[in-house]
């Protein structure tokens, strides 16, 4: 791959992550963007992201697909795995060949079953505080290059700084409370997708597009729209998406 093209992709990635850090940004949106951008940039096949809730438990907040989601959930359920380890230690974890790994059997079995051969986990940390971890999964064995490792960690750092420095932080609001709200938003968006899918007959992917487009064209926060849809106080017009499906 040409060096120039890589540089261009790299700048674009930082711009994209930084771009979500505008006023009144949505943590869910930021972390979705982070995991997607990192997955693309280092040529991984999938990614997932965990953050801590106020009680100190890790929760899934973002994933690029079902397979990555499954692998992350298995780690949460087993209480162990590379992302859990990365969260606990605040250090990156590299598994170049999952079939050769003898730690975390539940994670390894699940990852292999989903077709993944290698994984890299990156902590979301700032000055000794770790708020979560991101896992990037690949269908082939091997380590990420030094520069790819550095890039993914740098992007994770940017996102973490964004979260921890956000605000003005209201006096009564702890970062963990903010992270819990992000976890709530994630759920509300899924519930709203279900509501839209059942109302319109659209699939869940299209349901999300309907939700996102409505929020964007009305300059509303995605979570706010999702909440009204889930509460069923707002019904979105859907004809445009259905006819172009």
């Amino acid at each position: 791959m040409a060096e120039l093209s890589r540089d261009a992709r790299l700048s674009a990635a930082f711009v994209k992550v930084a771009d979500t850090l505008v006023d009144d940004y949505d943590v869910v949106d930021l972390l979705d963007t982070l995991v997607q951008v990192c997955t693309d940039l280092v040529d991984s096949d999938a990614g997932g992201l965990l953050i801590t809730d106020p009680d100190g438990w890790l929760q899934l907040i973002a994933s690029t697909n079902e397979e990555a989601e499954f692998v992350e959930v298995i780690q949460l359920n087993a209480g162990e795995g590379p992302c859990v380890e990365s969260f606990k230690t605040g250090e990156g974890v590299t598994i170049p060949d999952i079939s050769e790994e003898d730690r975390w059997p539940a994670f390894c079995a699940a990852a292999l079953q989903q077709g993944f051969q290698s994984m890299h986990a990156f902590p979301l940390r700032l000055r000794g505080q770790t708020i979560g971890a991101m896992g990037l999964l690949s269908n082939t064995t091997g380590e990420l290059s030094e520069s790819n490792l550095a890039v993914a960690q740098a992007l994770a750092d940017v996102a973490t700084i964004g979260i921890l420095q956000e605000r003005p932080l209201r006096d009564t609001t702890l970062v963990t409370d903010q992270l819990q709200r992000a976890l709530d938003s994630r759920v509300i968006i899924e519930q709203a997708k279900g509501v839209i899918a059942a109302q319109t007959g659209a699939n869940l992917h299209t349901a999300f597009a309907i939700l996102r487009d409505y929020a964007r064209s009305n300059h509303l926060n995605l979570s706010t729209v999702a909440e009204e849809v889930a509460e069923r106080t707002l019904t979105l017009p859907a004809s445009e998406h259905l006819t172009t499906q």
Binding site: E69, L76, A78, G194, V195, A197, A198, A230, R232
Partner: peptide
Amino acid sequence: SALVGGTRRHVHQATGMIAVQLDTSV
């Protein structure tokens, strides 16, 4: 004994769908 944070997204999606099917709250 060992579940931490593992609610899958389809549980939430299904909740939304059922709310419409039954015309009730989530």
